Amino acid sequence: MVAICAVLLCCADVTPAPSKSPSLPLLDRGEPITPIPPAPVLDPLKVELGERLFSDRRLSHDNSRSCQYCHDITTNGASQKQHDVGVDGKELPLNTLTVFNSTLSFRFSWEGKFRTVQADINSSLESPYTLASSAAEIAAKLDADPDMRNRFFAAYGRRPEGGDVVDALASFERTLLTPGSKFDRWLEGDDAALSADELNGYRLFKSLGCSACHQGVNVGGNLYERHGIFHPLASPEPRILRVPSLRNVATTPPYFHDGSAPTLEDAVRKMAVAQLNATLTDQQAKALVAFLNSLTGTFRGAPVGGSP
C-alpha cells in the first residue's frame, strides 16, 4: 500500500504554469514528473514463468502463500490491510508497498535497504516474516514438478536453480508498470486530459514543495527523507524512509509506513501539518486529492484498482 512520505521543506517549486498550447511536446513542459514508459520487452518465457511463480504457494516454506498473498496484482499491487500478516501469524511491522512500478524506484523497501530487484526478492523469500524459504529450497520443490521443470528448461535451458527462480520473478516484476494515467496523458500533450480541479491540484502540489521529494517518473522513489519535521506524522520509527512513489496512490489505502491514515484526504492533511506546519483549507485538500487521483494508471488495459 503506497503511502505519502516526507516533503522537503527548504524550497518551493517555481516551475511556470503549464502552457495551454495544444499538443505541446513533452520536453517543453518543463515539469518535474515524467510519464511512465511502456513495459520493457523481455524474454516472454521468463516473464510467463515469473508470473506463474508469483502466485505459486510453493514459494513459502510451508506452501501456504505466494507473493500474490500480499501483492495482489488484480487490484492495487498490495492489499487493503493496515498490516499484512506474516507466516508466523503476526502482523508485519510496516505497511505493504505496492509492487506496481516498484522497479522504477532507485531503492527497494520502506527503508531503501536493497539496491536491486533481485536483492529485494531474495529478502522476501528468506525473511522469516514473509515466506521463510530460500531460492534453493523453492528450486528443489519445482524440480519435482515435471511441468515446472519443463518450463525452466524452455526459459533457461536447465532444471530449476535458485538464481533462475529469482531472475524469473524479477523479469515479471519489471513488467508491472502502469502507464496511461490521466496525468501522463497530460504530460504527453493532451491538454484536455486533466480537469480544472486536477490541474489546480498539481499547481498546488508544486507550489507547496511536494514535488521536491515526489518527482521523476515514479513521483517519488528516488531519495530518502525524514518524516515528522514539524509535528509527528505516524509511528516514529523508522525515522528515515525512502520516499514512496505516488503512482496509483488513490488505490492503495491505508497510507504511511504504519498504515495509520485511512483515506487519501486524511493523509494529505496530516502531511501538510507534519511536514509544512500548515493546515490545508478544504479547497486545497480537495484539489490535491483530485491531482493524486489523476496518477492512477492502467495495467493490462484496465485501470489499477478498478478506479474510473
Rank of each mutant, 00 (worst) to 15 (best):
P38K: 13
V14F: 09
L24V: 09
P18M: 04
T15K: 04
L42E: 13
P22Q: 01
A39S: 15
C11T: 15
P37E: 15
P25Q: 07
D13K: 05
V47F: 13
V47I: 10
P25V: 07
S21K: 14
L9G: 12
P38G: 05
P37F: 04
P35I: 02
A39Q: 03
R29W: 01
V14L: 14
K20L: 13
P32K: 04
P18E: 12
L42Q: 08
A17M: 03
L8R: 12
I36G: 03
P22D: 00
L45T: 12
A17E: 11
A6Q: 10
K46E: 15
I33Q: 04
L42F: 10
S19W: 00
P32F: 05
I36P: 03
D43T: 06
V7P: 00
R29E: 08
G50C: 09
L45Y: 12
L27M: 13
P44D: 07
L26K: 04
L27N: 12
A6K: 13
D43S: 11
C11N: 13
L42C: 07
L27D: 14
L53T: 05
D28P: 00
P16T: 07
P38A: 12
K46P: 00
A39W: 00
L8A: 08
A12I: 04
D28A: 12
R52V: 04
L42K: 01
E31N: 06
P40S: 07
E31A: 04
V14I: 13
E48H: 12
L53I: 11
P16I: 08
I36M: 08
C10S: 14
L8M: 08
A12H: 12
P32H: 06
P40R: 01
C11A: 15
P16G: 07
L49C: 08
I36E: 02
E48T: 15
L49P: 07
P40A: 07
P32C: 09
L26M: 06
R52Q: 13
C5K: 11
A12V: 10
T34H: 10
P22E: 00
L27K: 12
A12S: 15
P32M: 06
C10R: 15
P44K: 11
E51C: 02
V41D: 14
A6M: 08
E31H: 02
A12D: 15
P18C: 05
S23G: 06
G30K: 04
P22L: 00
G30N: 08
S23T: 04
P18F: 01
E51P: 00
E31T: 03
R29N: 11
P38Q: 14
R29S: 03
P38W: 11
P37S: 13
P25K: 12
P37L: 13
P32T: 08
K20T: 05
G30A: 07
V41P: 04
L45Q: 15
D13M: 05
L27P: 09
S23L: 10
P16W: 08
P32L: 11
P37V: 09
D28V: 02
P35G: 05
E51A: 10
S21V: 11
G30D: 05
T34G: 06
L45N: 14
V47C: 09
E48L: 12
P38D: 15
K46H: 07
V7C: 03
V47T: 09
C5W: 08
S19H: 01
I36F: 03
P35A: 03
K20G: 05
